[in-house]
Write a protein that binds this DNA or RNA. Structure first.
Lengths: 144, 144
DNA sequence: TTTAAATAGGACAAATTTATCCGATAATAA
DNA sequence: TTATTATCGGATAAATTTGTCCTATTTAAA
């Protein structure tokens, strides 16, 4: 469904958000340990998220990553997915055809449109706050 | 969503099915040309489909691929997907967690379960006959 | 001011997926 | 029986994704 990079991005964002709710900044190492991901690879992904204003980073000692508290409930899962994987998953033809649309559809067009729309609707309406609170209260997990 | 190999497999199966409905056997070259896919790569994929009894092949002149006519409406899209990509798309956690289930869910578990179930339901209930007839009557296309 | 702890980012490596090449094998038809 | 036309399948290559390494840069604290 999502690329591995995107999975890491989502998990990292949820963890950073949960910590930010407590005004805690977290280091790259923490994040990688918490979501069970390769450190250096995770660093690249976090950089993308920072460049796209999903989160903020601070260099130097006491540095790390955090998400502006007031924005946590305005960031939707869709923004993270879009930043890392683009919008292919929401728009791409199920059979990979370049020219597939309602007028000249591929054989699975109609049925897959429904699923893609539902996916778009779902990830477009889950906020980072919702995801992070579930983690915070121990209702969900994120590691392995 | 699906791997490229799986996309080729689906398109090839639809084309072969449509031709088989007219009792026409088709060659590898025909298939690759018709679905705009690399010939040799397509050959590998077709071999997998043959080994899994999705279609049949005949060597030698007048040889090629076909699907037993009486079985075309019993083969569901799910079987093709399963043969090439396995069942990961139906079962895998949205965040790639090994131990994600209703008791100890990942943050997106519930919402993604719905989508995966719907996907499973859809591909489990589209028959090759349905897909091939759409192509046959020119309602759908499969190339580019 | 120096040191240490943190992210930034370029270059490179491994793994996986996608794609190609070529000889072997099978089967039809002349 | 031979030539031709197919698929089969192993080896290899290219492309993409995933992952690593190392140095530079920034910044807080001693």
């Amino acid at each position: 469904m999502f690329s591995k990079a995107c999975e890491y991005a989502i998990k990292a964002s949820i963890y950073v958000a949960a910590q930010s709710l407590e005004d805690k900044r977290v280091t790259l190492k923490d994040i990688a340990a918490e979501i069970d991901s390769p450190v250096a690879f995770t660093a690249k992904i976090l950089q993308q998220l920072v460049r796209n204003d999903i989160m903020q980073s601070t260099m130097g000692p006491t540095g790390g990553f955090q998400i502006e508290k007031s924005l946590i409930d305005t960031i939707q899962l869709a923004e993270i997915v879009h930043t890392i994987d683009g919008d292919g998953i929401f728009t791409r033809c199920g059979l990979g055809l370049k020219k597939c649309n309602a007028k000249k559809p591929c054989p699975v067009h109609d049925k897959f449109s429904v699923i893609r729309d539902e996916l778009r609707e779902v990830v477009g309406n889950i906020s980072l706050f919702e995801l992070a609170s579930g983690l915070y209260v121990g209702l969900t997990h994120i590691k392995r």
